[in-house]
Design a protein around this nucleic acid. Sequence first.
DNA 1: ACTCAATTGCGACTCATTCGCAAGAAATAT
DNA 2: ATATTTCTTGCGAATGAGTCGCAATTGAGT
Lengths: 153, 153
Amino acid sequence: MRAPHGQNRRMNDTREHIEKLTDALRRAGIRVTRQRAAILEVLADAQDHPDAPELHSRANAIAPGISLSTVYRTLSTLETQGVIQRHQFDGASARFEPAETDHHDHMIDVETGKVIEFCNDRIEKLQAEIAAELGYEIVHHRMELYVRKTGQG
Amino acid sequence: MRAPHGQNRRMNDTREHIEKLTDALRRAGIRVTRQRAAILEVLADAQDHPDAPELHSRANAIAPGISLSTVYRTLSTLETQGVIQRHQFDGASARFEPAETDHHDHMIDVETGKVIEFCNDRIEKLQAEIAAELGYEIVHHRMELYVRKTGQG
DNA sequence: ACTCAATTGCGACTCATTCGCAAGAAATAT
DNA sequence: ATATTTCTTGCGAATGAGTCGCAATTGAGT
């Protein structure tokens, strides 16, 4: 199992990370407004997988007066731009994370709600094989393991 | 890849299948009403993965006058009883299927919406290993492959 | 048949998310 | 700089899936 990105990004990388993102947006003809900048910053800093209301409150801490609708709209825009990813875990509200370089799946601790990222190449390969066997190619996939710490409960 | 259940159940099995289910419910102290019987029948017959409104309309074809709330309530009850399973594919409304003996995952054709069932033991095993490695046990999991027929698009 | 808790239908409600629209910025042309 | 055009925003209203309260009904043991 490869260890995925994220967890230990140095504070310093954040700045250039954001710049890279804003540049990408501008190049796509999308204005980098005060609100979008704030939301991007929050997303770049986030070590967890926040939902829209949470992002809203964090963004407002940076740049007050951002509306929830704008957060939702921006999240959709960023998703379409491939800048972030949306996850819909088990009937809760959608949660977001920056789209990093490498793909990964999620393990959700059903007790705490904590999300752990992981990636397993053998599973990925098997998935592709299964699809191919039936004449399909994978557009995208979701794999979520809902887990509990062993030896309790 | 094991071929999963379902697809070719003979019309005849349906009757006893339903009886088995209704008995199970009664034993659990849950009344088998006209509406629940209809919904169970529809579910037992379904070869696809219908959502609540669809089940509502199919059930009403058998026993007119069933309300949508009742369908929702019954589906929740049946799910808690372990009689059916609820699936939440990619931000659409929930879809249901009878909980058959063997577990399987889903492949969704993104063009047509068609759902294909499959099961792969090696993936299941790998999932358990990954969780165990981090001190977790799997409560349940979801694996969905969103696919497209190869060689078009 | 009688009783009583479980169940239903209805409409009101929630919750996450989206939309319409007028007012407010960016980018652009002048 | 200024005007113009186009994109964005905030607000509140609207949506859509699903839930809930409640009075009326109905299974299922007695």
